[in-house]
Design a protein around this nucleic acid. Sequence first.
DNA 1: CGGCATCCCGATTGATACTG
DNA 2: CAGTATCAATCGGGATGCCG
Lengths: 112, 112
Amino acid sequence: MELIESHLIDKSICPVARTAQVLSGKWTILIIRDLATGVKRFNQLERSLQGISPKTLSERLRSLEEEGIISRQTFAEAPPRVEYSLTEKGYDLVPVIDSMRDYGKKWLCDDK
Amino acid sequence: MELIESHLIDKSICPVARTAQVLSGKWTILIIRDLATGVKRFNQLERSLQGISPKTLSERLRSLEEEGIISRQTFAEAPPRVEYSLTEKGYDLVPVIDSMRDYGKKWLCDDK
DNA sequence: CGGCATCCCGATTGATACTG
DNA sequence: CAGTATCAATCGGGATGCCG
C-alpha cells in the first residue's frame, strides 16, 4: 500500500473539493450516470431514479445545466418533449463514475 | 464522444450509488484525501480541513471507522495521541479521488 | 408531459464552550 | 491533545397540488 506524495495534492486549489462540490447532492451523480447511457427525458429519469421527487429532479437538472454539465433541449410539440443529455464537460465525469463503480463492486457489493 | 452501453450499467446493484452513499457528507472525501498522504492526528486534520468543526470531524471519523475505511490508533500518553490512517478499503478510494482531481483540474480550475 | 409553487421535515453542519 | 455537550441554523429533500 503505497502512499501518495503529499506535494502532489494541491490543497490551495483543491480540484478534489471543487469536484466534490459539483457532485454534491443525493442524486447528482446518479443523474449523470443515467445520462451517460444516452439522451433521456424527464419522465425517464424520474422512473430510473426510483424515489426522487419531481421537484428535486427539476432542481438538480437545472443546477447541472447552469453548471454546464448537461444540456436541455425542448421540442415545441404536444405533448411537450424535453430531452436531457451530457455536455462534453458532463461526459468527462464518466471516469469518476467508473472509478466509483469499480470501488463499489469491490467493497460494497456482496454479489459478484 | 462515445456513449456507454446501457447494459454495462447495473442499476439493480448499483455500486455507483453505494459508493456515493459512503462518500456523502460535506467533508468525507476531503478527510480521505488528507489521510491518503499518510497518518494524521486529529488536530492535523482539523487544521488541514479549514472550517470544519471538531464535532463534525469527530462524527465523520467515527463513521468512516465504522465503515472500515479508516483505522484509529490510540496511544496511552500524556498528552494523549490518536492517529488516523486509511485501511486497505480506504486506500482503494484513491482512484476515485484521483479521477475527481483530474476532472477538477480540467474543468473547475482556471489556474494551470 | 414537464414542470413550478408551497409547505414541511429530518439530517447534517456549525458555533461555542467545556472536559479527561 | 482529542475530543464531547449543547444549542442553533441551514439545507436538501419529500409530499402534494396545480398548470400550460
